[in-house]
Amino acid sequence: MDNQGKIKIQCGHLHKTFHAKNRKQDEVNEVIRDFNLQVRENEFVVLFGPGQCGKTTILNILAGLEEKNSGTVVVNDIEVTGPRQDRGMVYQTTALFPWLKVIDNVAFGPKMQGMKHSDWKKKAQYYIDLVGLTGFEKTYPVKLSGGMQQRVGIARAYCNDPEVIFMDEPFGHLDAQTRYLMEEEIEKICNGEKRTVVFVTNNIEEAIYLADRIVLLTNTPTHVDKEYVVDIPRPRDYTSPGFLALREEITARIDTTNL
């Protein structure tokens, strides 16, 4: 996996510091220190790290939603300076447009780019079917369960045909049962529609289940601790020896480095 395919994301020496204006003094919070990442086409990379370690900030910078202090970020051969439609995002808390029905949420991107009514309708329907929401096209997000809302979010990101999709702990707020289901679902979708995916999580099982490669992050200021290539054949079994061994290895690493 390491040496094949075009490089889609090239991120070097990324630094990010937040300045919080306090009443008495300026609070400086260094979140990211010298973060490096390279992602190849159609690779599924999981950024795995403890909570509050700046994973979301990294994704936001890669997506162009937040500004970096220094370093280079090149996605799809273009230097990242702001949000662009060649990058998609699936959010932690579903960032659906509550005033739009499911189909209009999914078709938002194509519509903004002026696609013809019949075309976006067909396209949106395809992705709605793909995530298993057939029959809910005319429903408002507020009436859907958390898992279903996340499916809409995934369909919306895919429907815009991005080169790279960022997923920011998309299943973090779901119950354990739904979470397993969604992990299987996302794997199926990713196998059907090959895309470059950067997936953020703090759940080790989720990471091993989904990833081609796991990038282990440190606590803040965040940088890469170690990388693991996951070559367990898919679909993976949470209880297979290979799975458990890798889980053991990563957990041990976290314990020794005291993340």
């Binding site: 162009g64 939603l65 702001g82 949000p83 439609q85 995002m89 960032a95 903004m112």
Partner: peptide, 15 residues
Amino acid sequence: VNPVLEGAARLLGAN
């Protein structure tokens, strides 16, 4: 307005 929604719209190509 929720800034996350604004960002989402821009990522989907809205000007």
